[in-house]
Design a protein around this nucleic acid. Sequence first.
DNA 1: TATGAATGAGACTTCATTCAT
DNA 2: GATGAATGAAGTCTCATTCAT
Lengths: 220, 220, 220, 220
Amino acid sequence: MLARSIQSTVMRRQPQQTRSQERVSHILTAAEALFIEVGYEQTTTRSIAARAKVAVGTLYQFFPDKEAILKALATRYFQAEYQLFAALHTPEAESLSLSDYVDRVIDAFDHFMNSQPGYRAVYEQLLSLMTYSAIEAIDDYEYRIVDELAAFFARLNPDLAGEQAQTIALVVVKVVGDLLWLSASQNPEQQRSLVAETKVLMLGYLGQHLGDRMGQGDVR
Amino acid sequence: MLARSIQSTVMRRQPQQTRSQERVSHILTAAEALFIEVGYEQTTTRSIAARAKVAVGTLYQFFPDKEAILKALATRYFQAEYQLFAALHTPEAESLSLSDYVDRVIDAFDHFMNSQPGYRAVYEQLLSLMTYSAIEAIDDYEYRIVDELAAFFARLNPDLAGEQAQTIALVVVKVVGDLLWLSASQNPEQQRSLVAETKVLMLGYLGQHLGDRMGQGDVR
Amino acid sequence: MLARSIQSTVMRRQPQQTRSQERVSHILTAAEALFIEVGYEQTTTRSIAARAKVAVGTLYQFFPDKEAILKALATRYFQAEYQLFAALHTPEAESLSLSDYVDRVIDAFDHFMNSQPGYRAVYEQLLSLMTYSAIEAIDDYEYRIVDELAAFFARLNPDLAGEQAQTIALVVVKVVGDLLWLSASQNPEQQRSLVAETKVLMLGYLGQHLGDRMGQGDVR
Amino acid sequence: MLARSIQSTVMRRQPQQTRSQERVSHILTAAEALFIEVGYEQTTTRSIAARAKVAVGTLYQFFPDKEAILKALATRYFQAEYQLFAALHTPEAESLSLSDYVDRVIDAFDHFMNSQPGYRAVYEQLLSLMTYSAIEAIDDYEYRIVDELAAFFARLNPDLAGEQAQTIALVVVKVVGDLLWLSASQNPEQQRSLVAETKVLMLGYLGQHLGDRMGQGDVR
DNA sequence: TATGAATGAGACTTCATTCAT
DNA sequence: GATGAATGAAGTCTCATTCAT
């Protein structure tokens, strides 16, 4: 508290990361690495604390229990994923050709997947720890992506009934997620093939549902 | 013969007598139920034994450790899955129309998924316990499905290079598996929609790769 | 039972070892080997039964529990040891020179120790399982050796009070036993040195207590 | 410094603080008592913890496993024994009469044996848990005693070849150890007799090897 | 009488969490 | 707020012993 008031007096701007925020960040980073390396169950709170160079007690000052760390990581991923999704689905995106749209989206998520290696480890652990509805309770980014994607599709093809757009969006999100996750564990060549096939798959599927409704922007 | 090879890999003692075979079956059933309900890690060997109405010691007479139970279940699923696959890919299947082929395969696997509720829980746990190559070591049914499906596609369209057929087969196996798994956890109506969409997805994808090479039986 | 009556009818002599006696013997031999190899606690009743080529249940028909096997082995050793002792302490032994007496006794027990490798493993386990008095209860061969040796010494030197002869005999039994046991685990050369030193030690000790009271039979 | 080397070999965590050192001491004392009372194998880690009034977890914070507790106790004994030995074999000891030397040494070790009742229980268990060379690895105090005693003898009687002095020293260490251990379990009168006989035995033995090479201080 | 599958108490050890310093 | 020693419930697995066949 004293430190704080000194800072606010002396420093011009409150640092973005206060000491505590840094600590939390260190803990999450340490946990992420360990969850990937040895799995959630095999990761001990001690080992997280040790890797984050804090005492276990400190860890428990920020997180009520081990599961909370998992949830916090999940939220971090979901947010990032949603932000990526949102950035790709601005109004302008609607004027892209289907082929360009698919290219952009899949390349972007392919990159995301490879830069967030802990995503799946965390997501899968979350699934086995709690029901799907409990996961929604944590945060609803996942749902928002499906919802907004459904709306995006419905705008392109108004014939799609609400329900149907939802299902299509769910299929797209699931399939792209799974294939990119699969590709992330392959050798570079196989990875490229899988990403290419994912595009073929999506192009065919969305072609059937959206037809030539998308803009002819810059067809390949 | 198949049963024998499972046991020699995974089990401690061959259940020679009917009584014992029943016990093993009870143990596996109990384990399956618990893995689904609370997850593999949360399931204790005591609870499996209790549910199977045997003593823990009995359980350990058949399985060297907890992981072996998981492997035995996995083998059971993989075998069943392979047998289903093989039954659907007899030479006669090649003369079906693409639409009929997709219908049959997806309906069959949809039914399989719903009748084997533990499949995914087991498979996912297996993935987090061991490397993919270690899973192959348990048995290679998974690989065989991808390989034989690739060969099936290559017979229909000889233009598909070996590598490409493999990738396509992998995509099909993965995507169908994931979507049907997803559908299994939905309400009946959503389930039907998802299964229908899965067919649309596959029809579009295989249509691109196989064209009209399949029999013209009763094209839609 | 049928087999028995046939035998008694057909065979001239009842075989020294009936089927059961052979089984007991096999079990004891198996147990002895395992106690030496891995120790008493590490030896399981199953492993004993397996090595003896009988079922565990059969083992329990002859021995009420694991400890009883240990006791039976101990009795076997103690008897053999006592018989060796007795054979060396006939009336004629009293007319040997001290040097010859010591030579004979130590060489004989040295040979015994090397031919009964399980003796100590069993004896030491016995000590840690029960009190010394409980061991006496099992059998009193050990005591008889000390007692008879004391009497032997007292006959040679009547000046030795009863108590003192007992103590001397105890010292001799203990020291010879321990040094020969130690020598048994050494390389051949060290073994010879230790046996030689044991003789020097005993010769000096008994010389002090028995003086030249022993016969001059065939001095070296 | 000595204490440190024990711990770094055997213990998990250095007890930094007085509080912790006391805890370790309590644990060792509790273990010692139980090893004597019921034997090493029969002693459970829970019972040690309970007797030491700590939680099992605390015990495992200092010792990686049950065996480590045994080793720590052994090291404690070996150190104390070596220190006693060293204190008795200063240069001045060489000028004592043989009789005085034997008196001092045996009285000192007799006292040691009675004040360290767990010594043998621990030592014997150690022997059955590991090879002799593995015990050396724990610490080499035992060997040092034999070596230094051999050197002591060789200084008094340079005629003793290196090998022979070693064997004599080994015999002395073994025999004195065994007889005093035996005496420790006898009633007071028998105990006195055994100690007296041990002196007679050693005096006779060393007289033969060292003759009158020792100082004539106050020969009996 | 022989068998060996079944039993289940109990051993060792781990680790999420607390709380005195 | 930070620390990390202490806690003890709970997990996996073993093995002496029993008893139905």
